[in-house]
Amino acid sequence: MDFKAYRLEEAPPTVYYVPDFITSEEEDKIISNVYAAPKPKWTQLSNRRLQNWGGIPHVKGMITEKIPEPHLDGPLFYPTVTTISCGSHTMLDFKRPILTDENETDTSDHGPDTKILSLLLERRSLLILQDDMYHKYMHSIAEVEDDIVTDKVANLKTCGIQYIQGQTLKRSTRISLTIRHVPRTSRFQIRLGK
């Protein structure tokens, strides 16, 4: 697939957004496999749950583990983060960049908590973040039940459905598959259970 056609020019470097990346059948299979995971695979976080596959986070790197079916092979190169959304849409909000160089100055008139853009992540879509959008921009998902389409949504033109300003979108349970390349991994494996 040539991802160049999916690059968002309305966002800082670099964002690719692919609507309908997976089929409805593939989405159903992913959701089924996620919910079929044993309880020890789930970690309860604030207002969400998490499963970690492919490795266990450790201060010295990831401890590798086998990835079950279905799986994806991960990003083409580092640093890249990819996300597939299943079950529901969400709105991913980005705030101004974190300045890492002491000589850099912030020329904006807005504080660090000012939202600069949002991305509407539709069901079955693929999001790829690289470069500044991966390294510098803070991102979050607001804990709301409904999202309102505004002029801050940078990918409206590339969404699979046509949305209009002011439209309200009702959220349901979303499952996101986030794939990251972890350069430091250990071949040491942990065996849980029998």
Rank of each mutant, 00 (worst) to 15 (best):
D2K: 04
D2H: 03
D2F: 08
F3L: 13
F3Q: 05
K4W: 02
K4V: 02
Y6K: 05
R7T: 08
L8K: 01
A11H: 04
T14Y: 13
T14K: 03
T14I: 11
V15W: 04
Y17T: 00
Y17H: 03
V18E: 05
V18A: 11
P19I: 08
D20R: 09
D20E: 09
I22V: 08
T23W: 15
E25K: 15
E26G: 05
K29S: 12
K29L: 15
I30C: 14
I31L: 11
S32L: 04
V34F: 12
V34I: 09
V34Q: 04
V34N: 06
A36T: 07
A36R: 10
A37L: 10
P38W: 02
P38F: 09
P38I: 09
K39Q: 07
K41F: 04
K41W: 12
T43R: 08
Q44L: 03
Q44H: 04
R48C: 03
R49G: 06
L50N: 03
L50R: 10
L50C: 02
Q51Y: 10
G54C: 02
G54T: 02
G55W: 02
V59L: 07
G61C: 04
M62C: 13
M62V: 09
T64Q: 09
K66E: 09
P68E: 08
V81T: 01
T82M: 15
T82E: 15
T83N: 08
C86H: 08
C86W: 01
C86Y: 03
S88K: 07
H89V: 11
M91R: 11
L92S: 00
L92E: 00
L92C: 01
D93H: 14
F94W: 09
F94S: 00
K95I: 12
R96V: 00
R96M: 01
D101A: 07
N103A: 05
D106C: 03
T107A: 13
S108C: 06
S108N: 05
S108D: 06
D109G: 08
D109R: 01
H110C: 10
P112F: 02
P112T: 12
P112R: 06
D113W: 09
T114L: 01
T114F: 00
K115P: 07
K115Q: 14
I116L: 13
L120N: 07
L120E: 01
L121R: 00
E122A: 00
E122S: 00
R124A: 02
L129Y: 07
Q130V: 05
D131C: 06
D132C: 10
Y134G: 09
Y134R: 13
H135F: 15
H135T: 07
K136Q: 09
M138A: 12
H139I: 00
H139C: 05
I141G: 05
E143C: 03
V144K: 01
V144Q: 04
D151G: 07
D151Q: 05
K152E: 14
N155W: 02
L156R: 15
G160S: 01
G160E: 02
G160Q: 12
I161C: 11
I161N: 12
Q162T: 13
Q162R: 12
Y163Q: 08
G166N: 12
S172N: 14
S172K: 15
T173W: 01
I175W: 10
I175R: 14
L177G: 14
T178P: 06
I179L: 10
R180G: 08
V182D: 15
V182Q: 12
R184A: 09
R184E: 11
R187I: 07
R191P: 13
R191I: 10
L192H: 09
K194F: 01
